[in-house]
């Protein structure tokens, strides 16, 4: 099997792609946004509950998409749950760098993070949008 494919589709990604975690809608929630990839039609809806200390108490998503977009959304919700907003934004920056192939100066993400498994997307520039769809929804939900 080709290395690029094995790197892109690591076991954890296939697993989260098949069985996304935190799939659903937060009830209650005070932040939400839709994400969509106009190139392919994939879409999701992200909801989360931000408490008065700026901590993401709960975060969930629904939607349809490829393994990469679903796994990325699923792993994102796992990572962001319980995080303070400023940290979450740093994770966002690191993650977008990671998948667009600039993984040298990551601030908060490390190889131990399960999100790191998405690094293989860097080998498929046309798939970067799949991996970042949920993250951009997160960003726009922050403004909602």
């Amino acid at each position: 099997m080709n290395d690029l494919i094995n790197e892109l589709y690591q076991e954890i990604i296939l697993d989260h792609g098949r069985e996304p975690r935190n799939f659903g809608e937060c009830d209650p929630h005070n932040k939400s946004a839709d994400g969509h990839n106009p190139l392919c039609g994939d879409n999701l809806k992200l909801t989360f509950l931000l408490n008065k200390d700026d901590i993401i108490e709960d975060i969930k998503f629904t939607g349809e998409g490829c393994a990469i977009s679903l796994a990325s959304a699923s792993l994102m919700t796992e990572k962001l749950k319980g995080k303070k907003i400023d940290i979450a934004e740093e994770i966002f920056n690191d993650f977008t760098n990671l998948v667009s192939g600039t993984s040298e100066d990551l601030k908060v993400l490390s190889e131990e993070d399960s999100l790191y498994a998405l690094k293989g997307v860097g080998g498929f520039p046309m798939r970067v949008k799949c991996a970042t769809m949920a993250w951009h929804a997160f960003k726009s939900a922050l403004k909602s």
Binding site: L4, I5, Y9, G65, R127
Partner: peptide, 28 residues
Amino acid sequence: VHSHEVSSFLDVEGIAIRAGHHCCQPLM
């Protein structure tokens, strides 16, 4: 299996196919 996966998989085998909505979202 989502069409994106099929297309990426085939791509590394040298095979170029299209995956997506083909600019026909109402048809999809």
